[in-house]
Amino acid sequence: MGYAFDFSFLDEYWPDLLNGVWLTLGMTVASVLPGFVLGTLCAVGRLYGPPYVQRAVTFYVEAIRNTPLIIQVFWLFFGLAVLGAKIGPFPAAVIALVVNVGAYTAEIMRAGFRSIPKGQIEAAHCLALTPTQALWSVQLPQAVERVYPALVSQFVLMMLATAIMSQISAEELTGVAYMIQSFTFRGFEVYLVIAVIYLAMASLLRLTLMGVAHVSFPRLRRLGTPL
């Protein structure tokens, strides 16, 4: 093959890579909580809401889950630009990620709510909790506890999906890599380096979210199984 690997671009461009990492992590962190809240609201709406809410949520979930993220991003970003709404690439990326991950979270949380034994809800009624109270303090914690590993995987996937946001000129890690390779013509090495960075970030995010679970589900930690 006779190809000489050359990683010397790292000397000059590591601050740019670091900026890319920050932007990628920033997008991810900014999207996780709103995405989770949106998804949970949709799951509740689809399970317990009036019929028109159920239909609306089903439409939203199926529309998002059966089209690629990148089309959703283009639709939002270029569409808003035509409407005259001036919105930067970063907020556009975060909105698209929240809308996207919300649909997946809704399905995961719906499965979580449905897997709770009936006895738990009946017990809540017997304790004279209102339906809202039962939902908030009995069903929600148990549902989250049960589907937490699936949620973690979904949010890691979302972090990886931010790699296309450079298509709307949000200069996250992949965008930075493209910039570097166009200056140095070391495309293979650049993308190998950021592949390693993404691997590290995926592990980091997974470990962090698992750590959050360790702190927030003390009962699960003691017993080892969900209720």
Binding site: M1, Y3, A163, I164, T174, A177, F188, Y198
Partner: peptide, 20 residues
């Protein structure tokens, strides 16, 4: 599962081209 698909695409794309 830990590398974004677009990055895999780039690695393969540039990898094949440097292999000649």
């Amino acid at each position: 599962q830990g590398i974004p698909l677009p990055v895999i695409m780039f690695v393969v794309y540039f990898g094949i081209s440097i292999a000649g």
